[in-house]
Design a protein around this nucleic acid. Structure first.
Lengths: 155, 155
DNA sequence: CAAGATTGACATATCAATCTTC
DNA sequence: GAAGATTGATATGTCAATCTTG
């Protein structure tokens, strides 16, 4: 009599890979969060918003567009912008029912000051340790999973 | 005269891989969170704690040990256990200055009810889309990065 | 009315205390 | 005193309203 494995179990290698991936992903997030906070007094979300705005023409983006690019709930973005406003990193501009976020000089300075150490940190933790081939593999795997997430319940 | 690239810039492929990885990782987290919440009324952290306890002898672990295994701040774990207690998923046991968490019958039932759909979700999003080779690559990459995180400022 | 913005309530994470027991 | 547990303050994320303006 053959043993029957439930259809919903992962195989051994899959299970091992999943645990490693989850742990890596969580530790990496934590390490990056801490580095940015300690060295630059920014959260990774602050940094993400500043980086997006700094690359936009005139450092200015429509809030709705920003929330789409970052794939954030509109209310998450709103709260985040409120906090960043309070700290002088960005400013809001409202035109009728349309809302914009603009990076301030202080925000640009903070982002530029934070970038080298942040990039260096990512490099040391990730890219200095992986071969060019592995970097390519990571990109391929990420793209594949991402494609699945997009087609999954596209709403 | 050769152009000099700042030492802190990532290369094109590295930068592309990093963006894809970050986006994949965030979307995957969100999707899993939503699936667990919708189908089983559990957060992914609830599920993680329940899974750890359910595998422990007698469904019981020392809080300190649990926080080490999960690599969580002790106070994060404490708040989490408090919330899970309130919902009847676990119970606390205090012996002197030592604190334990025990899974309840309701907690075990919730975890067992949640597991199949959760596993199936992970499989559909990740493992059904990757080749065996890619699963192995993901494990290797994760292990490598994790090793770096461990030796990095080990405190 | 409907798109988009805003708000508030609640869940979660982190940090810096403080409390407890050996 | 110190290991470990607990607490509270603050930052962040999600959801379900409500408000505003075309």
């Amino acid at each position: 009599v053959a043993t029957v494995t439930s259809a919903t179990e992962l195989t051994g290698p899959e299970s091992a890979a999943w645990r490693l991936f989850m742990q890596m992903q969580e530790s990496l997030r934590g390490s990056i969060e801490q580095q940015l906070q300690t060295d630059s007094n920014l959260s990774s979300t602050d940094y993400t918003v500043l980086a997006a705005l700094s690359e936009a023409p005139e450092g200015r983006m429509r809030a709705l567009h920003l929330s789409q690019v970052l794939q954030w709930e509109k209310s998450r973005l709103h709260h985040q912008l409120t906090r960043m406003c309070r700290r002088g990193l960005i400013e809001r501009q409202n035109e009728g029912r349309t809302s914009y976020a603009v990076i301030t000089e202080a925000g640009r300075a903070a982002q530029e000051a934070a970038r080298p150490a942040h990039t260096e940190h990512v490099r040391q933790l990730v890219f200095d340790r992986l071969t060019d081939q592995q970097v390519q593999q990571l990109a391929d795997i990420s793209r594949t999973v991402l494609n699945g997430l997009r087609s999954d319940v596209p709403d």
